[in-house]
């Protein structure tokens, strides 16, 4: 078992444990912090796949910005175990059913995948390095990339319109 494998297993355990803690935690602030741990573990996986750019962008965007906004809202709402609203029984049942259905779909979709044939090429796979990623994004996928940037632009314009005083 090489160092890569040791890291892979420990990161996987960390990711799964943190993900479970996100759901199980009574305190929503703790949930958010566990979610940040999940992002860290996943970024670790990206680094193992030699995708450093993706790893760090995952941290900057998700852990660094989006989760901070999550934390904002939760802190300001002052949620805690005492003020947690009693959930509807039917809502719980519906949640269990839909979650189970999603699990079923995943299992069905991934059952027949030949994982061995698609092992990430750690030794030679340098597509994740920023140089290659940039070339791929701006040569092969330039149209979808620009279209997605227009999407962001429209979101920004929308924010400005909402934020503008009447």
């Amino acid at each position: 078992m090489g160092i890569t494998q040791i890291l892979f297993w420990s990161l996987s355990v960390l990711a799964l444990f943190s993900a479970i803690m996100v759901v199980v935690s009574r305190n929503p602030v703790h949930s958010v912090l566990w979610l940040i741990m999940v992002f860290f573990a996943i970024s670790g996986h990206y680094i193992l796949l030699n995708a450093q750019f993706l790893a760090i962008v995952n941290l900057i965007v998700y852990a660094g910005a989006i989760m901070v906004l999550f934390l904002f809202v939760i802190m300001l709402m002052n949620l805690n175990a005492d003020t947690e609203p009693q959930k509807n029984k039917w809502l719980k049942i519906a949640g269990v059913i839909s979650g189970g259905a999603l699990l079923l779909v995943f299992v069905a979709a991934l059952k027949n995948v030949d994982a061995k044939a698609h092992v990430a090429q750690v030794a030679r796979g340098d597509i994740g390095l920023i140089h290659n990623l940039g070339i791929a994004l701006f040569h092969d996928y330039v149209v979808p990339f620009e279209i997605s940037s227009v999407l962001f632009l429209s979101a920004m314009v929308g924010a400005v319109v909402i934020g503008k005083k009447e």
């Binding site: 450093q52 901070v68 920023i130």
Partner: peptide, 17 residues
């Protein structure tokens, strides 16, 4: 690392926590 600046940004954005 070949993403040095991004690493700094990543860590700085963690500093908020």
């Amino acid at each position: 690392i070949n993403i040095g600046i991004l690493y700094i940004f990543g860590v700085v954005s963690m500093g908020v926590y």
